[in-house]
Design a protein around this nucleic acid. Structure first.
Lengths: 140, 140
DNA sequence: ATTTGTGCAAATCGTTTGCATCTGA
DNA sequence: TCAGATGCAAACGATTTGCACAAAT
């Protein structure tokens, strides 16, 4: 599977359809920004800026809706680190995060670098849906 | 130091003054609810309800302000698990959390129960301000 | 007396929704 | 064709702020 700069529009369309999303113009525009190249951590606002810098127009509402659709479809992962704003991560594999609180910046930590051992018993009738490790950093 | 049901008002006042906060009536009312007895995890809303159930009146604004003052003073700890709402924890010691997402409920995990090993190098010029481990649970 | 805190209501900010209009399959 | 998507603007909920009043040292 392709993952980077070299994805063509039809490959992106395919990626969307593969998860049950119609390959509409706005969704393709977003997919191009999200799944090509750099953009790893983003907020609705930052993505909106990227859209504008790409010379495109899209309402914030559509961006919010699309981010959630992508997330539900498994193309993005939501990262809860800041009560002020929602972050999304194009890396959906198992991993953790540094969060630099005075820069609002996230950095990935590979899953293997952190071992969580001896989890206490999970109360009966409950399933684990995820384990998040957030290492909060502060720039001196 | 006292920690529970048996704290008198003057001990609570002392606790507030010890961290540089004037022992005002509203702050004492909150301290009584927070630092006596059960209340471990709370939101501004839930605390507001507790205030009312205690037969008191206090504006939400004052509750928000007080929660932040208490947090900055080190009497509370903020727990970021849900983008919809801020949680606070009266347990300020080092520990982690289960979060039951479809019940909006937190459960403490003692720090020793989780070992985070081999942290990757922290980028130069950055300090660790905290390590949060959140185990997300879902009631079947 | 002076500083600090409170309460209210209005403002703010991120996010969601209703609805009329478009558009992809 | 026509279910599904979009865009706008209005609604929303949590949180914050401005300001006149009240209380603490």
């Amino acid at each position: 599977m392709n993952t980077n700069m070299d994805m063509t529009d039809s490959e992106l369309s395919e990626k969307l359809r593969a998860v049950g999303l119609r390959a509409t113009r706005p969704r393709l525009d977003l997919a191009r920004l999200l799944f090509q190249g750099e953009n790893c951590h983003l907020t609705a606002e930052s993505l909106h800026e990227d859209v504008q810098q790409a010379g495109l127009k899209m309402s914030l509402a559509t961006i919010y809706n699309s981010l959630h659709q992508f997330t539900e479809a498994g193309l993005l992962r939501q990262v809860v680190v800041d009560s002020a704003r929602s972050y999304f991560d194009t890396n959906t594999s198992d991993h953790h995060h540094f969060f630099i609180s005075n820069e609002n910046r996230l950095i990935d930590i590979p899953a293997e670098k952190v071992s969580v051992s001896d989890l206490p018993d999970v109360p009966a009738g409950l399933d684990i849906t995820g384990v998040d490790v957030i290492i909060r950093l502060h720039k001196a």
